[in-house]
Design a protein around this nucleic acid. Structure first.
Ligand code: FES
Ligand code: FES
Lengths: 154, 154
DNA sequence: ATTAAATAGTACTAGAATAGTCCTCAATTA
DNA sequence: TAATTGAGGACTATTCTAGTACTATTTAAT
């Protein structure tokens, strides 16, 4: 299904809330209450995001979490790879170990191109974009999207 | 990790072999032998691909599998969704059931844009592209990729 | 100093999804 | 009719994910 994990989905919900109210730190409990996600789960996600340098934490009473950078500087790609590891469609994109085909595999390079493309797409969207309301009926949507990988071949 | 399942990876390996030798039908056993994937697994994948109308099968002695269309007409997106179901990063892209946030969720629409972008990327690559050798040092690669989603906002 | 509030880190459990195998039935060819 | 090959489904084992719990550490307020 090529899907993100639930935790990643939660993370974007949490982060967009934080991006909207970026004036003070938020305690894990507060975030849990507002988003409706269970506290231990919220807590887990926040810790991961701190490690990934997406958030900054302050310990102790009155402590909490805040965005490490402006929402414009935090990309969706970062968030995803924080929670799920590197963005790599196939095993071989990460390491060639474990791929029996590796030796004579012609298609590996092509996967990595596709991978790049998706990565670029995800990197071009920031938290600031995510909290913006979607334009209804994006005009000429179909035409705005350049067919990306194929152009390298044709 | 935003990764494809192993079975999908196998499927592309199998299909690219079949695309390279598209002159006659291939029995499951033959494919297993050549690709090195275990027969029952190959068999399972082939059946799924037949159901998805990517392959056509012939039963009986001298039977086997063949591409349903020319390699140029089979997209990577098709193959992926055959094996993993619809391409949808988040649950909400498929059904809104099961998403607690649905009511006041601002970010849903944005995910679906991102999703579209990825889908388009995958649809633009065909089997024929996959079996072509990668151009070494794709020229001006960085510039060829249009920043896709963000352009809708900015 | 003491206490309370908050995160850090890690370990664990239960459940779900994936990968892989096997068996029986149907169709085609020789 | 016998041999070959796919169709379809059931089943198992393993891995991954989601969620929870517990202890230690840090800071602020009293
Ligand atoms: S290198 Fe892994 S499938 Fe080709
Ligand atoms: S609708 Fe599901 S996260 Fe917004």
């Amino acid at each position: 299904m090529l899907r993100l994990s639930k935790l990643t989905d939660y993370a974007t919900v949490i982060l967009s809330f934080m991006a909207r109210d970026n004036t003070h730190v938020h305690a894990a409990m507060e975030i849990a209450a507002i988003t409706g996600i269970a506290l231990p789960t919220v807590s887990k996600i926040l810790k991961v995001l701190v490690n990934a340098k997406v958030l900054i934490s302050t310990r102790g009473a009155k402590g909490g979490y805040a965005l490490a950078r402006a929402p414009e500087k935090i990309t969706v790609a970062e968030v995803i790879s924080a929670l799920e590891g590197p963005i790599a469609l196939t095993e071989c994109s990460i390491s060639l170990q474990g791929c029996e085909q590796a030796a004579g595999c012609e298609i590996r390079g092509n996967w990595s191109l596709i991978n790049q493309t998706i990565h670029n797409a995800l990197e071009s969207v920031t938290l600031a974009d995510m909290i913006r309301p979607v334009r209804s009926q994006a005009p000429a949507w179909e035409k705005e999207i350049l067919i990306p990988v194929a152009s390298l071949y044709r």
